[in-house]
Write a protein that binds this DNA or RNA. Structure first.
Lengths: 253, 253
DNA sequence: CGGTTCATTGAAGCTCATCAAACCCCGTGG
DNA sequence: CCACGGGGTTTGATGAGCTTCAATGAACCG
């Protein structure tokens, strides 16, 4: 029952209606908890057969390294998010994962997780579906990188993080706690840290959003949405097993 | 048996060793063939319950549109690639798909495809695994967009396309046929078409690669690899069900 | 042929990176 | 207590990389 309040089930619960039994299965998948201090490497690029986690507390990031030593952060992970899910499915880490704050994570048993797909297809699909939201975010980052300028891109990221945090009860339209440094923002946005700083100043002076000392304060939510051309759809998707059920008739009949 | 030579099974065959029975299952999934002329829209953004295809002949691209009307191409699809696989799994198209040339595609029955995951987990995982290579490519594009300059990025793309085409027998280290326009290159690289043109000229003048009239001729393969910092790993992965089997002992025991 | 699409090149200017320096906060140790 | 050092933030100056606008040519097609 306590699990019902965890960020993970809270997040899945917004996607599909989970039965008591299904919640129990999810809970049974959880192995022991692990803690990581900030900066300790959790998964390294190319590592085989590593663990999958669900983030219970703290922030992490996944990134790829270039030979040049530069890195590109692919995404941040917040409470309720999977870490290294793809790695368990495919036995290869395409990315490194590193905690940003101190992190608490529940270990997932790889075998059990694979079995879910066979024994409980509905739940398996739900998990896949959560993974697909992650994909959708990566694609949106790609779009932003290619077609949005620094200000739009930064605004978009701050809005996306806000929306994700709201899902798990860690933020509101007015703002949220955010442990990122400007260097980390630079690494995800594909900008230099210096330019990130100027962009943040601009957003502050335009009275849209203030990023400062571990806190994001959204001064003008609608203005920010407009500036970033933020479209919620890529995060929401439609919910295949609840409201949209009538659209699935042809598949289930 | 003819199927064994199709780009699709050829590609999957490099990933896992397919048994006769498994090949037959794959074949049975194929529905009727469809043809599309260049530029006809196959899947539009936000469309529900659309079809999944395997590309048999021709090139296509998947992209997202911005409100501004600009578009960002996420990836190109070549023979053997899935089109809209995720859409069937999750009942939502996150992207549009459009043929670049005239296209022949085999329709996949959505129900059957879903059932594969339950009835033949090994094959289901193989399909997922192919999907994960697509993810890996998207992430690599993201990295390139954030951290590589125009010349490196262009060289990298040309090498990636070459590697993918070689897999299905449509290219060699010396080059391949490529129906893309410079505008389409611009849309995937996040550049202006004008700049793409200058970059291609530079690559030609450096005697690395020539992109001209539907053909990519690679003059200096190794030089191109070095310039682009091209690392094959993100395409190859490791092959979980063949050579790397010993690494999976702990999962299968 | 005139129309359309793609390729090519030049010129001008904006966005962003790079280099450099200072500052602030905070913790550490003399 | 203050000096010191280190990570993160802030600001200015300069210039590279890319976009945009504009014009021309080349290939194709009804």
């Amino acid at each position: 029952m306590i699990e019902k309040r965890s960020p993970f089930s809270r997040k899945l619960g917004t996607f599909i209606d989970l039965s008591e039994a299904e919640l129990n299965i999810l809970t049974s998948l959880h192995g022991r908890r692990k803690s990581y201090t900030a900066r300790a490497e959790m998964v390294y690029q190319g590592q085989l057969d590593q663990q999958a986690f669900v983030l219970a507390e703290g922030w992490a990031c996944s990134y790829r390294l270039l030979q040049s030593g530069e890195r590109q952060i692919v995404d941040f992970q917040i409470p309720g998010d999977f870490l290294g899910l793809r790695s368990v499915l495919f036995h290869l880490a395409g990315q490194c994962i590193e905690p940003i704050t101190e992190v608490q994570a529940s270990l997932f048993n790889a075998n059990d997780l694979m079995d879910v797909f066979t024994r409980n297809p509905r739940l398996g699909r739900a998990v896949l579906w959560a993974a697909s939201r992650d994909d959708s975010m990566v694609i949106e980052h790609l779009v932003g990188m290619g077609r949005r300028n620094a200000v739009e891109r930064t605004a978009h990221l701050l809005l996306e993080l806000g929306a994700r945090l709201m899902l798990v009860g860690r933020g509101t339209k007015a703002g949220y706690d955010c442990p990122l440094s400007q260097y980390q923002l630079a690494d995800v946005l594909g900008l230099s840290a210096v330019h990130v700083n100027r962009v943040l100043r601009e957003l502050r002076e335009e009275k849209l959003v203030t990023f400062r000392s571990g806190r994001v304060d959204i001064t003008n939510y609608d203005g920010l949405i407009t500036l970033a051309n933020f479209d919620h759809d890529y995060l929401d998707h439609y919910r295949p097993f609840t409201k949209q059920a009538h659209l699935l008739d042809r598949y289930t009949s």
